[in-house]
Design a protein around this nucleic acid. Structure first.
Lengths: 203, 203
DNA sequence: GTCTATAGCGGGATAGAC
DNA sequence: GTCTATCCCGCTATAGAC
């Protein structure tokens, strides 16, 4: 892997576990198996710029999971509940350490690091756009798709935080149940028709 | 106000805006209008101990808002939507700076500062217990009350994060709409009976 | 108890050899 | 482009005058 890629990946890992301020450049360098100077060679903006790149990369990877997880289930509500359960299992299996780095960094430095706040905002706008696109594709009207997208994203972010502190999967499972129930109550007939359409599109 | 109280309050403020790692002891001292040494006089555990006290104090204050906001409305779903709208307005009016310090600190140091993680866990356990107590008081069965409590808390935490990055009230408003709709779908007749009972209790 | 001065350390960033 | 040595600053924490 290229040096700059290793640096970005290492930063993403460290952000997930210990946040931005606590992550030192030297720690980052040794985690990336690169000398300190290489960081400034590849990223002239230093630590800030590496973190911004890590947020964009991680954010893009996260939202790719949405169709991967939800396409598995013909019923959208079932898929949502399963996605929360998967996130809960991952969190538990990694020792409650793997937060979403985007959320962590926003909490830390949204008001003190404009570059990072902007990167986080772009990532989240992308999440919302992709969520709406996916859910309208599964038959939800635009305004409902937007509400459900925000419901999913806020519940996930909050569940990461609560699960990490409580060391329990319950925040994920309970939040997943309620979002799924909300979606199920929206209008099952319209949605199953949409699912049929979606499956047809692929064949 | 006593010196130690000023210190705890200043720490809570700083945690909300810039997190734990970025908050220095000297900055804390000047914000509390106290000399550096006073911090170690009142809190022998230093910065860590001040932060733990700030989390407990803020956490207790936050959960007191729950009945204050929801008692205003006879219909529970309406009250929930209004509470999210109030949180959104507060966030906007403070320049998108006022996160929940408990969530921020968890993201930063849950795996590196055991004392703070434990303080956050205690605070959140208290939130859950109070949420369940309040909602069962308004007529929800225990298991539903627990799910709704987690739905409220995770959505709020996540909405703080997204609203701060996006500088938009939409995460709060959209999440509030969905949680309210979920509650409204649970069983309106049982709940309005409970509301009548609650009002009667007060007179 | 209140406050000042400072120790001791680790941070981010840089210069320059190779 | 890779790596080392080092600068300078700010941090936490403490010692000790008042």
């Amino acid at each position: 892997m290229r040096t700059d890629e290793r640096i970005v990946r290492a930063m993403a890992e460290l952000l997930r576990v210990q946040g931005y301020a606590a992550t030192g450049v030297n720690q980052l360098a040794s985690a990336a198996q690169a000398p300190t100077g290489s960081i400034y060679h590849h990223f002239r903006g230093g630590k800030r710029e590496v973190a911004a790149a890590a947020l964009r990369q991680t954010g893009a990877a996260y939202i790719r999971l949405l169709p991967l997880l939800l396409d598995e289930h013909d019923d959208l509500a079932t898929g949502i509940e399963a996605a929360f359960a998967a996130a809960a299992a991952d969190m538990r299996d990694t020792g409650w350490a793997n937060m979403c780095p985007v959320g962590t960094v926003v909490g830390e430095v949204a008001d003190t690091e404009p570059l990072l706040r902007e990167a986080a905002a772009e990532v989240m706008e992308h999440w919302v756009a992709e969520g709406v696109r996916y859910l309208t594709g599964r038959g939800l009207p635009e305004n409902e798709a937007r509400d459900v997208t925000f419901a999913l994203l806020t519940a996930l972010q909050g569940a990461f935080t609560m699960a990490r502190a409580l060391r329990s999967t319950e925040p994920f499972l309970a939040a997943g149940r309620t979002v799924a129930a909300y979606v199920a109550a929206l209008g099952p007939p319209a949605r199953s028709a949409a699912v049929r359409g979606r499956s047809a599109d692929r064949q």
